[in-house]
Simulated scan of single mutants.
Amino acid sequence: MNISVVIPTYNRKRNLVALLNNLNNSTQPVDEVIIVDAGSEWLTNTDYPNLNIQHLSSIPSVCVQRNMGIRAARSEWIFLCDDDIEVPADYLQKITAYIQQHREAGAVSGQVLQQENGNWTATYPVYSAKQLIIRYIFGLGIWGEIRCISDNFFIKRIKRYYVRKGNHIARSGWPVITDFSGENFTVPVFGLGASVIRKNWLVHSPYDERLDKYGIGDNYGVSIGFPGTGIHVLNNAFVYHHQEQMNRLQHPLQYYRRVLALDYFIRTKKELKNVRRISFAWSLFGNILVFLFSRNWLMVDAAKKTFFRVVFRKNPYAEGAASNKTIIEPKL
């Protein structure tokens, strides 16, 4: 397999050097590494004997940077890799072996582990029956196994519902990923920051350059446009996402922009024609209640403003698209 690596970066030289060291030690060779740099601290030492590195200059925008790297790539397959990802030496080898055995797979990722309470995890299981009921009633997203134990008939019925539905997009538009079983599983949307994807899939479903420069919500819009069985995720391959805090938004603004991005995609993506806007609005009302109960007042304020933006169709992304604007930065 011929693989081009595309890395968007912005003044994260330390992270970039660590990632290039990972790729240089990869047991699966890559044809080229395309660094799309929007910062002022360009890498000067490119002495990596196993890597063919090229630098491209860009404006600060993750979506613009990724699209630029994808267009420049010479290979049939592209490894999209965020600059704060730690890639084990055998990661790409496991993914390429899977692709060669499963020709229908056009987008493959391993598990992406993040630090939560001192532990590396890729999922956020639902342990509480109360939390499960709230997510079910309001059609909220789930990204983890359902592990609450209860003899309650209603809880058992909800659990059977999620088993029957499998990994899917809810009528509210949120991803519901509850089945992580087996050697691999498939999902309709996924974070693509450590994925190997056919270049023609990415050309057909590019990153939307109207989103903010941080690319909040960007992978959802790309993933939903993929053909076939969606994204294949391997349970025997994993990377570490270090979540570098430089150039990262605070949670209330992240939430605000992520919801606005989803609303924008619901309004513009034909693949989401089965999503009901009333269900989406209902889910946002549910989020307001969740934040109220947890007394997270900053998130309550962000959720209320988001709710009214969506209900009254005042989405800055949709308004900017109508005026052919790019890199729109919605303010709270």
Rank of each mutant, 00 (worst) to 15 (best):
R198E: 14
K165Q: 13
L234D: 04
I231F: 01
F154K: 10
R157S: 13
S195C: 09
F153W: 09
G166W: 02
A170I: 05
V163M: 08
R160Q: 12
V187G: 10
F190S: 09
Y207K: 01
P175W: 06
D208M: 02
S172A: 10
F190G: 01
F226N: 07
G191H: 13
I231D: 00
Y161R: 11
P188I: 10
L202H: 01
Y207R: 00
V187D: 08
T178W: 01
G193I: 03
L234H: 05
G217P: 08
E209I: 07
I224P: 04
R160C: 06
Y220T: 00
V176P: 01
P206K: 04
S223V: 01
G215E: 02
A170F: 09
W201C: 08
G225M: 07
I197P: 00
I169S: 03
D208I: 00
A170T: 08
L192V: 09
A194V: 02
G221L: 14
N219M: 11
L211M: 09
G228R: 11
D218N: 15
N184P: 04
Y161A: 11
K159G: 08
G166K: 04
D212G: 03
V233H: 01
A194C: 09
D218C: 13
L234Q: 07
R164E: 14
F154V: 13
G228P: 08
K213F: 13
V203L: 15
N236H: 15
N184E: 12
S195A: 14
G230R: 03
V196Y: 07
R164N: 13
V187N: 11
N235G: 12
F180S: 06
G191L: 13
I224F: 07
R160K: 14
A194D: 01
H168T: 08
Y162A: 10
E209T: 12
F190Y: 14
I231Y: 00
K199T: 05
L234M: 11
N184Y: 15
P175M: 06
G225F: 07
D218H: 14
N152Y: 09
G173W: 00
I155F: 05
H168V: 02
Y214Q: 04
G173T: 00
N152L: 14
I169T: 06
E183T: 13
K213I: 11
D208S: 06
R210M: 11
F154A: 15
P175R: 04
I224E: 02
H168W: 03
N235E: 11
G230C: 06
R164D: 15
